[in-house]
Design a protein around this nucleic acid. Structure first.
Lengths: 191, 191
DNA sequence: TTATTTCTGAAACGTTTGTTTTAAAAAAGC
DNA sequence: GCTTTTTTAAAACAAACGTTTCAGAAATAA
């Protein structure tokens, strides 16, 4: 009957996500966003909705990518402990590269003011928790990890620990610091 | 010669700080701020300066309060380990009370975009680091802490760890989780 | 081709933003 | 009490904000 949407929605969301990621929700203007997305604001409002709706979609997109990353790791034939250590090292690399984690940033900037965003971030956190928990438990059963601590606790502990590494890197830009803390965390697990 | 300033500047800064703390830098409007400070914007611009300047003063004020808190703790006659454990428990209480830490929030929202703020937050982080480092070192010398880890590493580690507890509480509102992680951290130190 | 529908681009919308101006009120020194 | 200086309150400021309107272009189906 009529014309169909011209722009690629997923690509546009990806671009908007990058803007929000860098600037945060409040200081990313609609001009910043539509410029990056290369669409007119009328197209945005016709298809996706307003700024809040766009933001929710971006946060969802970000956590979808994280979920895919975890699912890929789960397909690996490496031992649970190896998968865990790789995951930690990759988390360190993300921090040191300077992008940091969008989910962490938004948890502090907007989660308290937007329930939908909080729910998405909570689900993301729960998913990462489950991933870590299962890995730690399996590694214990195989004897790769010697600690007698609850896997529940250890999973929570790492899930929150690396947020602090991110803050440390923002303030001090000291990659060595982050690497040493990661190394210490792994050592605590092993013994 | 002439009239003197009518409002109490420190009280006004305190009020502005509370607004920034709750809303963040970008979503706190000048109306929000001057309403809380109970002054007219012309008075603000005549004495303190623009929004950025006010914000810097608020962040500085916040870190001054933290410094005073640490100095009070240092005057205690308790053992280093006791001071350390009390500090950790109080950090947990701050998180659970729901205010969280303004320094952490602002590190994620504005530190990358404002060098002056970043410098203040870095100095604050360095001060807390030194406090923790000295306590840990003294506790080791007295045999209150058994671990052989570097006090430098442990101080960094805690300084960043509790940031993650804060994020965890934002997303999950689970006080038990935070208490267990703190308990685990203390146990790791002790043995 | 024509009719119909929907998308697009540019402009305009009313608000809200941070900031400045203006005129009057208030304090201090002579 | 008068003069001088500075603070104050209220209003006004331009710029930027998120959002909507509107006319025309584009695509589909008949």
């Amino acid at each position: 009957m009529a014309r169909s949407v011209e722009f690629n929605e997923e690509q546009a969301i990806q671009k908007a996500m990058e803007v929000f990621w860098e600037k945060g929700y409040n200081s990313a203007s609609l001009r910043d966003l539509t410029d990056a997305m290369k669409i007119n604001s009328s197209s945005l409002y016709n298809t996706i909705g307003d700024k809040q709706e766009l933001f929710v979609r971006c946060v969802q997109h970000y956590t979808d990518l994280r979920k895919q990353d975890i699912q890929k790791r789960l397909k690996s034939s490496d031992s649970p402990f190896t998968i865990l250590v790789d995951y930690i090292h990759d988390a360190v690399d993300v921090i040191i590269k300077g992008n940091g984690c969008m989910a962490v940033k938004m948890a502090f900037e907007v989660a308290n003011a937007d329930q939908r965003v909080k729910d998405i971030l909570k689900a993301d956190s729960d998913y990462a928790y489950q991933f870590l928990h299962d890995l730690i438990k399996n590694a214990m059963d195989r004897g790769e990890i010697a600690t007698k601590e609850d896997p529940e606790l250890l999973a929570d502990y790492f899930n929150s620990t690396w947020t602090g590494w991110y803050e440390s890197y923002i303030l001090h830009h000291d990659a060595g610091k982050i690497r040493k803390m990661a190394q210490y965390f792994i050592k605590q697990l092993s013994k």
